[in-house]
Design a binder for these strands. Structure first.
Lengths: 134, 134
DNA sequence: GTTTTTGCAAAATGTTTGCATTGTA
DNA sequence: TACAATGCAAACATTTTGCAAAAAC
């Protein structure tokens, strides 16, 4: 099944890439409206869903409420900054021996993985009080 | 700061453990109502939030919409069955050298991690058509 | 020309909040 | 007693859906 290319979908795809980083649907919507002023919010969501299904973008469901979208569809991991919520791409890992053994022991057939790291990005690590909520 | 112990919170904590697996707030609510018939949905959410903050339970935000709660607060990873959405606990991994290098190269200070695996649980792996959506 | 997508508004989900009342420490 | 938690309903945020009109192949 091919992805029918409409101006809206093209614009959404471009917006995911040009927003920089890992934008939310809301940020993508805002961006897309620059070139597609009449586009509906629902169309952005529909387009994102189609793009995700066709593996043109990645959908990331992190701790925060809204999904974030990633223009790089190839496998990789992510580090979330607890200071500013920014996301940084990280080289992908393969499952550890322990994890493989532990899954195999339960008869679980592993098929893919995604690791989320937490910490402080370069900027927030410099500001010594960032990300400290207690 | 201590966690004020109310019958509701105690019941929610017990429910998370006794539901088995990794229940959603809705499942916990249903369970809690057996012993606390008058409890409000919001109270379950408030209790869960308090318990998560005090690290008595873990909150898991997986691909599916609703958060799931984990009675085992110690660090570990999870494998999601694409056939039946069940979650299996997996021994925790440490960051790979590649990931460490890749994060360090960007000045990111790693602090924690969680890996989600995908695949098929023992039951669904036997049923050969489970988890195949195309 | 047929099928899919758009746009709009409204629904569906999951979660949080305001406020008066109750209960815990 | 003082402060925090409950119960209720209503608000909130995010995402999905139903349907008529428009557009893509």
């Amino acid at each position: 099944m091919f992805l029918r290319m409409t101006p809206q979908r093209r614009a959404v795809l471009e917006a995911v890439a040009s927003c920089g980083g890992h934008p939310t649907a809301a940020q993508i919507y805002t961006r897309v409206r620059v070139t597609q002023p009449g586009i509906a919010y629902a169309t952005v969501y529909n387009a994102l869903r189609a793009l995700v299904e066709h593996r043109a973008v990645l959908q990331l469901k992190f701790g925060d409420t809204a999904s974030r979208y990633d223009p790089r569809p190839e496998r990789h991991d992510h580090a979330l900054c607890l200071g500013c919520q920014s996301l940084v791409d990280v080289a992908p890992s393969r499952p550890s021996r322990r994890a493989l053994r532990s899954a195999a022991a339960k008869g679980f057939q592993l098929n893919g993985q995604h690791t989320q790291f937490f910490g402080l990005c370069a900027d927030c690590a410099t500001r010594p009080d960032a990300g400290e909520k207690d």
